[in-house]
């Protein structure tokens, strides 16, 4: 029998801790496949965040650091500066990256730190049980915005790609969606490009995944994909914000 699909070498053979229907697994696989394809497994180091993907340090099959909440870009900076011969990425959720870790991500991007950042945006805090995230949509109900996110009171959700795109240094910034087969194929290309730029030492690369959280949204997985397409994508428009490596 011919094997046509198997676990990427860059993922360890351990059970994921994600809920059924969650898109974290897809994001993990795209990153792992890309690292395999670029032949970087032996020179890769990753930094896991605090949040649903807190256990990502167990899932990837190379050296990993588990960072304090929001600090992954600083930890990745330390690793990369200490081991310039290695390739470093962070994997972060929306609370980690866009709330408590806002300073760290903005300044790592502003330094043009030679790392890749993979940002999973599902508009909610998953691990702690469905609280409002900095990316929670206006009027969206969460356990800490039980009457809906009131933008007059708590402000509008943060569009991180657009924010980072105001900086000079970043090399590559793209937002992709994990909400359908074709979208995932596009996402894979973006992830692969980020890893390629990382391999080539081009600079700071950033991929945002528009994702779902069926558990904390309280919607079945397939309906969550539909809800996200209808509600998330109009606000978080996929696209390339910056690609300094693109042919002119």
């Amino acid at each position: 029998m011919e094997v046509i699909a198997t676990r990427p070498k860059s993922l360890r053979d351990v059970p994921f801790t994600y809920c059924p229907g969650c898109t974290h697994g897809i994001a993990h696989r795209l990153i792992a496949e890309s690292i395999d394809e670029h032949g970087l497994i032996n020179k890769m180091a990753g930094v896991a965040p605090v949040g649903c993907s807190v256990f990502a340090y167990k899932f990837f099959n190379f050296d990993m650091a588990e960072a304090a909440h929001g600090r992954a870009p600083a930890v990745a900076t330390g690793i990369k500066r200490a081991r310039p011969d290695m390739h470093v990425f962070t994997y972060q959720g929306d609370g980690d990256l866009a709330a408590i870790g806002t300073a760290e991500i903005v300044h790592a991007a502003n330094r043009g730190e030679h790392i890749s950042v993979f940002f999973v945006n599902n508009a909610i805090y998953g691990m702690t049980g469905g609280q409002m995230a900095p990316t929670t949509l206006p009027d969206m109900k969460t356990t800490t915005s039980p009457y809906g996110r009131k933008v007059d009171d708590i402000g509008y959700p943060i569009r991180v790609c657009e924010l980072l795109d105001t900086l000079v240094a970043p090399y590559y910034i793209e937002r992709v969606s994990l909400l359908s087969g074709p979208d995932i194929i596009k996402a894979k290309k973006a992830v692969s490009k980020a890893i390629q730029y990382n391999k080539e030492g081009r600079g700071f690369t950033f991929i945002e995944f528009v994702s779902t959280c069926p558990t904390n949204w309280g919607i079945e997985p397939v309906k969550a994909l539909v809800w996200a397409k209808e509600n998330m994508l109009p606000f978080y428009k996929p696209g390339v914000f910056r690609d300094k490596g693109a042919p002119e």
Partner: peptide
């Protein structure tokens, strides 16, 4: 670093390396 918080976490990364 952008803050003492970032600096100590850079230390964490480099010490981890």
């Amino acid at each position: 670093a952008e803050s003492e918080v970032a600096a100590i976490n850079m230390v964490y990364g480099a010490a981890g390396a």
